[in-house]
């Protein structure tokens, strides 16, 4: 886990994930505009940025749900933007994704939810599946909840079950989409600890997409701050906190107004009122 300083010269050859000159458009609006990003194997990396800046777009590009207009996306030496059908499915089996809503299937128990990828993708006998699922649930501390339905779980518990499900096939890369949103401080701390723990125990690469700057301390090795469809700054949390660029300062310190304007673009107020 030695990935602290890959700044603008980020073209390290052995990076696990590498996005090059990625452009992505929605309608005519450029969401990503020539974005470059490198993530080293085995690290915990955060992609930070204000809401609506295209962080989730990066996640969808890495999982192959969407394709860039131009540019390349390489994960573990595979060109994700060129994978098709069965290749994409084979690639996704090496991914663990924890979505913002936890996205547990509502009509299945916790046990069945975690067992689902195993049942779908392997022909393991039932006792092995059971042992596998129980060990993952034990790791997130929820072995006691196997017979509960997702609607009976609290938000934090649901996230942890989703994490167990993401880990059940021993992925190489785990992606977290807004893992702390809507959680109370205790639950958020638990999830944060689990992310770190999973990374060390399983030696996976972890990408955390979040706007929650305060949770980053002690969790991540390296953060990338996205502003305006590009990576505006990269570095350890300490480096970023010390950054004097106005934009980065505004984001890290949570100021209402600054280079990211408080007002949504609008015609002059006086003109609007006099109409």
């Amino acid at each position: 886990m030695t990935t602290s300083t890959q700044q603008q010269d980020a073209s390290t050859t052995d990076s696990f994930i590498s996005l090059r000159d990625v452009v992505f458009r929605h309608d005519t609006r450029n969401i990503l505009d020539g974005l470059n990003l490198d993530i080293a194997q085995g690290s915990v990396v955060a992609i930070l940025g204000p809401s609506g800046v295209g962080k989730s777009t990066i996640l969808k590009l890495i999982t192959g749900q969407i394709r860039p207009v131009s540019g390349t996306i390489t994960v573990n030496r595979q060109r994700v933007d060129q994978l098709s059908g069965t290749q994409l499915n084979r690639y996704r089996k090496t991914l663990g994704v924890m979505l913002q809503n936890s996205a547990l299937l509502t009509d299945m128990t916790v046990f069945e939810n975690v067992a689902l990828p195993v049942r779908e993708h392997t022909r393991l006998p039932e006792p092995v599946i059971r042992r596998l699922v129980l060990s993952k649930l034990q790791a997130v501390g929820l072995r006691g909840s196997i017979d509960m339905l997702p609607r009976e779980l609290s938000g934090g518990m649901a996230r942890r079950v989703a994490l167990a499900r993401a880990l059940v096939l021993d992925p190489e890369l785990v992606l977290y989409d807004e893992p702390f949103t809507g959680l109370d401080p205790i639950a958020a701390a638990t999830v944060s600890k689990l992310i770190r723990h999973v990374n060390e125990a399983l030696n996976v690469t972890s990408v955390v997409i979040t706007h929650d700057v305060d949770r980053m301390q002690g969790l991540i090795d390296c953060a990338h701050i996205m502003i305006g469809g590009k990576i505006a700054a990269s570095g350890t949390p300490a480096q970023l906190a010390a950054d004097e660029t106005p934009m980065i300062r505004q984001f890290m310190q949570g100021l209402a107004d600054g280079p990211v304007p408080f007002h949504y673009p609008a015609p002059d107020l006086a003109e609007d009122l006099l109409q």
């Binding site: 749900q65 996704r92 994704v97 979505l99 547990l104 299937l105 990828p117 779908e120």
Partner: peptide, 11 residues
């Protein structure tokens, strides 16, 4: 609630 997305991401 992203359940369909989650399934797709689990291949």
């Amino acid at each position: 609630t992203e359940q369909l997305d989650a399934l797709e991401l689990m291949a």
